[in-house]
Amino acid sequence: MSRYRGPRLRITRRLGDLPGLTRKSPRKAYPPGQHGQARRKRSEYAIRLEEKQKLRYNYGVTEKQLMGYMKKARRATGSTGTALLEFLEMRLDNTVFRMGMAGTIPAARQLVNHGHILVNGRVMDIASYQCRPGDVIAVRDRDRSRQLVERNMEYPGLANLPSHLEFDKNTYTGKVNSLIEREWVALQVNELLVVEYYSRKV
């Protein structure tokens, strides 16, 4: 299935707060649809599926991409769930978002795709690029690029800068100091349930 481009508040009503997807909060506290207010007992599969969907919609990845990250996380040392979150959080579009250069991850992805972002002095237009410790991320030295980021920074998506990043608001330059720690992941998700969901698929 391709990347979701429909109403974002519909997703947040169903899955809860997704800080990377939208800054808006829904007016209704129950899921959308005719049976949204009906209390139904959810199966274990439904609970795992919901946690997986949170990752998909928040980070804006396709099912195929998420499956690929899951396979890489399985091969990595340490906890599979933590490794999966690391891969998603260290994507370039998410890093640009966490630095405050865009209000949402889709907005950050657009900045990257349109060539407004430099990584180590070179234009990087691949949103899924995996940032590594030592990478320097900056806004391209063009009026258009600077204006876009300046406008975005008036309404940042998340107020707190994670400990693994640093960002200079005067020069629009940031640096990745290390891999993200689990406590700094803004999305409320149980990654162990996601690992369980994929246990029979990967």
Rank of each mutant, 00 (worst) to 15 (best):
W184M: 03
E154W: 04
D141M: 11
D168H: 00
E183S: 09
N152Y: 07
P162K: 11
S145V: 09
V139M: 10
A138R: 13
L187V: 11
D168Q: 03
T171F: 06
H164E: 04
V149K: 10
V176S: 05
L165R: 01
N160A: 14
R140G: 15
V176A: 07
L192K: 06
T173E: 11
D168W: 02
K175V: 08
V189N: 06
R151T: 11
V139I: 13
E166K: 00
K175S: 03
Y155G: 08
R146D: 05
R144Y: 14
E166I: 03
L179I: 11
M153T: 01
R146F: 03
N170G: 11
R151I: 08
K169N: 08
R142F: 15
R142M: 15
A186E: 10
N177T: 10
P156Y: 02
V176D: 09
D143N: 12
S178Y: 03
L179G: 10
L165A: 08
N190F: 02
W184R: 06
E183P: 00
E191A: 00
L158P: 05
F167H: 03
A159P: 02
E150A: 14
L161N: 07
R146V: 11
S163P: 01
D143S: 13
R140D: 15
S163T: 11
G174Q: 02
P156H: 01
E191M: 03
V185L: 05
V149N: 09
N177S: 09
D141T: 13
T173C: 06
Y155N: 15
L179R: 13
L161A: 03
M153R: 09
L179Y: 11
R144D: 15
